[in-house]
Design a protein around this nucleic acid. Structure first.
Lengths: 218, 218
DNA sequence: ACCTGAACACCGTTCAAGT
DNA sequence: ACCTGAACACCGTTCAAGT
């Protein structure tokens, strides 16, 4: 029926196909049935190269992160490099929302190791004392992945249409604005800011707060 | 066959049962079949009170967070209160790991609103300037949920046995220590710290870095 | 209004059989 | 060694029928 593929399968080919399906249709779209169809092959062929679905997701995540971390950030001072690397991760998770969820699922995987090494190394270059640099690295990595993941969840929801995004934010802003100011004073005030805030800018503002806090440790 | 329940079902009863199943067996254990068995009822009965599985998960999450946020933190100065609230969230997500994943999945839900209100209100009490308090709140909330979620992923993995935890950390530490120090200098050094670090302490250290950074905004 | 449970349209994964 | 695809043991969700 379906024509059989002539070239051999490999884990890399499978992982690339999985990433393409994930980018196209989100996590729900990645099924072994969709994969066999896309690769013109059978289940067993895939299981021959990949242990299971969770292995597949992890490998796809590692590939995306390795690509981002591979973009060298040379020459710049550590503070600027930290901003660049953080923003690179933010943008990568924005482009591949499934990466955000996966990173917090299997934290001992190569992807997170690369991230820790890069961010920790840059913090060490900032002359943060040895006994606190590990706390600082943990905090910064978690901040970056936390915001990026949250942002990705929104992006996934809105599916890329900027009109959707504006309507969605307007909707939430209206809901927040209609809350009782006595009971929700902060969120009530925040509503007016929500509509026209820039996610990337807010993300960078958070990184800067972090770096300012770290500077006090010196 | 199964005896039919005599008292009426309600969304609250269903949500409580779902939370109990989630605490017991993790996200994979929550199925409608397990729920009908535990509640001695049928699928339709549950769908009569709950829109679908995602609604059920969200409602269970809202209930947990509302309980944590309900614990008033009065009298203390804002800085101390922020530490207390952050730690309360950390501990709640540690005890109910499924909450962590859920919070980043549907961020417009009541649970996250409560968290923003509480943390934002305390930051405002710290005299953070109005134009930056929203950035600061976003950053702190994301840090707290990011670390808590990561920690919960580990906890889920280890399933509560402290011996497992020690062995697991020892395993990762050994793997990190065996990495090439040329290629992974930071992670290589971090390995020695990993074995005996305290997650809660490291979490609080991060909160403090944050608060120090926010103080520079004043 | 509230509940029952068979049935439907899916999943991930296995495995005997093929090349 | 690598691949095929029927089959198995599950899912979430629906809906005609009952009380």
């Amino acid at each position: 029926m379906a024509k059989r593929r002539t070239d051999g399968l490999s884990k890399e080919v499978i992982v690339q196909a999985a990433a393409a399906i994930l980018d196209d249709g989100g996590e729900a779209a990645l099924t072994f049935r969709a994969l066999t169809a896309r690769l013109s092959t059978g289940y067993g062929a895939i299981y021959h190269h990949v242990a299971n679905k969770s292995d597949l997701l992890a490998a796809a995540t590692d590939a995306v992160i390795a690509r981002v971390m591979g973009d060298a950030v040379v020459g710049a001072d550590p503070r600027e490099a930290l901003r660049t690397v953080s923003l690179g991760l933010f943008d990568a998770i924005d482009a591949h929302p499934w990466v955000g969820a996966q990173l917090s699922r299997e934290p001992w995987r190569p992807a997170l190791l690369e991230i820790y090494e890069r961010i920790g190394g840059l913090l060490a270059a900032l002359d943060v004392p040895e006994q606190t640099v590990f706390d600082a690295a943990g905090a910064l990595v978690n901040y970056v992945l936390g915001v990026a993941g949250q942002n990705a969840a929104n992006a996934r929801l809105l599916d890329g249409d900027p009109a959707d995004r504006s309507a969605f934010l307007g909707d939430i802003a209206a809901r927040w604005a209609s809350l009782d100011p006595e009971q929700y004073p902060f969120v009530h005030r925040a509503a007016t800011r929500l509509r026209d805030h820039d996610d990337r800018e807010q993300f960078l503002a958070g990184v800067d707060i972090f770096l300012a806090g770290i500077a006090t440790l010196r």
